[in-house]
Design a protein around this nucleic acid. Structure first.
Lengths: 128, 128, 128, 128
DNA sequence: GTGGTCTAGACCACA
DNA sequence: GTGGTCTAGACCACT
């Protein structure tokens, strides 16, 4: 487990998921949480790879997915920048929340539990 | 996407997860939901493989994981049987529910949402 | 788990070992413990199979191994009899004890433990 | 019977047990004995398969069981690594010793022997 | 190059 | 007939 503060967001790595997905996820979540300034520059592929001590290909793959989702924009010769679109951020936040909710709900259903059981679990779980 | 009614549980297959894991998961959930009779025989490795049109080794791998979790018992020359332990079933149900809850909660936290936001989402989501 | 009192010895079955081996082992150990009268008749293959609710082939296989070890003798038309040889019994007892000891010692060595560590374990283990 | 020195542990194969179990057992015991450096990389699936002249799947099965027991960690694209947890190693050592002891004790009981007889056997057995 | 999944098919042990 | 082991070889995901 490693932890890094990169530009304005920090990245923790574990071993249970693909690296590129972790990098991707953490940047995405940092944006959704509003922790990175819109329009700001993020580290170059090489720079981030160096700091995380991982392969540049791995970082690149994460950046490419971010770009596909329109969360980043690459400008030739200048670097990679977070989107300036407030809407895009809200959209991604809603989308990530919805995905998580759907996974949870379908798991509950798979276990034959109803909404109120799920609510009870959520009420009782330790949050922080 | 294929769907099968096997003995007392049905199995759907998609392509996003390993086959053996899907078979495993669906049997596990069927047990947790109490849809399979404790102590009952489940289809033989070859039979289920035939019906799902997958390789017997793939089915066996699922069965072996079930056995490791003590959810099944296999008797060479006789077949594979669901555990008779009511406790084991409750245990697995709790464990699966807890896993799902934890994933959900940590996603919510990653998005910077608090418990009440999560509760609101859960309240509003379409359930059935 | 089933338990049966057969002739002069009782047989417990579990599911972790081949059935024939369990039957074999338990008769062999009963002889070694001196719990069966030398020269006495043991149940026929069919009779024991019926009582244990297992396949006669399974019982037969156990009896065949007993005969191979000269612990039993089959007399045509009369049935199967425990050996009358006191020596044979001592021999089998020593042999079984030695086997168990060897397995234990080699396990201890595989773990890099010396004799005194093994002795300590044996001293401290709950016996009854 | 074949014997190999692989990285820092050697592996002997016989024919009385499943191959994957032998590979598994020997690595497990090597870890328990403290003969492999914690955190170190073990041979790749393919490499070990080549040296032992067995199928890669067979090696993988052993590695996967090690991982389930948290004795190894596998990182896709990088290799398989011994756990860094000192505790885990002690735990596995104790567990293996306990298993061996239990087997021995129950065999002794099955033969009608008491603790002191067992101790006598252990005292007299040739150790090295 | 690494590990992971899946297949097809052989052969064995057990009931 | 059942489950269990092993092989050979394909194809995929990740670094």
């Amino acid at each position: 487990m490693a932890e890094y503060e990169i530009g304005s967001f920090k990245i923790e790595l574990d071993l249970t998921k693909p690296l590129y997905e972790q990098v991707l996820d953490q940047i995405r979540h940092a944006i959704a949480r509003g922790e990175v300034e819109l329009g700001s520059k993020i580290p170059s592929v090489r720079e981030l790879a160096l700091q995380l001590k991982i392969n540049p290909n791995t970082v690149m793959r994460a950046y490419q997915e971010l770009e596909r989702d329109k969360l980043c924009e690459t400008r030739r010769g200048q670097g990679t920048f977070i989107t300036t679109s407030e809407e895009k951020v809200m959209e991604i936040k809603k989308s990530l929340a919805k995905d998580a909710l759907n996974v949870f709900v379908s798991s509950m259903k798979d276990l034959g539990m109803d909404r109120s059981s799920a609510q009870k679990l959520l009420e009782e779980v330790e949050w922080e």
